[in-house]
Amino acid sequence: MEEVPVTVRAEGREETLSVERGANLRRALLAAGFEVYAPAARVANCGGRGLCATCGVRVETGDGAPADADHWHDRLAARYGYPRLSCQLTVEEPLTVEIPEKRYWGQLLPR
């Protein structure tokens, strides 16, 4: 399988991962040791079904940005500036994501 570079910015560090094309972004981030959840949501989340809205990431726009939002939360994210749900993103092209700091349940604040 072909691998795609995904640059991740989180907690003051930047790392580029090699992710299999077609992989789910949430699963890839968790497998690489990145925490996409706030403390409480680590144990009480929907498991990647797009229901709890706590695995948000900011996707850098431009080349490699995922296609138009097709999940209800991602449509709202695009409209109001909230992070996109990593569980609803498939890695197809190189991309850069930022995992915002989360202190409470999801705390997905607009910019």
Rank of each mutant, 00 (worst) to 15 (best):
V4Y: 01
R9L: 09
E15M: 10
E15I: 14
T16Y: 07
T16D: 01
V19R: 01
E20F: 02
G22W: 05
N24P: 03
L25A: 02
L25F: 00
R26W: 00
L29P: 01
L29T: 01
L30K: 05
L30D: 06
L30W: 08
Y37W: 15
Y37G: 08
A38C: 04
P39F: 11
P39Q: 13
R42P: 09
V43T: 11
V43R: 14
A44Y: 14
C46L: 09
C46V: 11
G48T: 10
C52E: 00
A53C: 08
V57G: 00
V57A: 06
V57Y: 02
E60R: 08
T61L: 15
G62P: 09
A65R: 13
P66N: 06
P66H: 03
A69T: 13
D70C: 04
H71F: 12
H71R: 07
W72Y: 12
W72L: 11
R75S: 04
A77Y: 05
R79S: 09
R84Y: 05
L85C: 03
S86H: 12
Q88G: 04
Q88K: 06
Q88F: 03
T90C: 00
E93C: 04
T96H: 04
I99Q: 00
K102Q: 12
R103P: 00
R103K: 07
R103C: 05
G106E: 05
Q107N: 15
L108G: 12
P110K: 05
R111M: 07
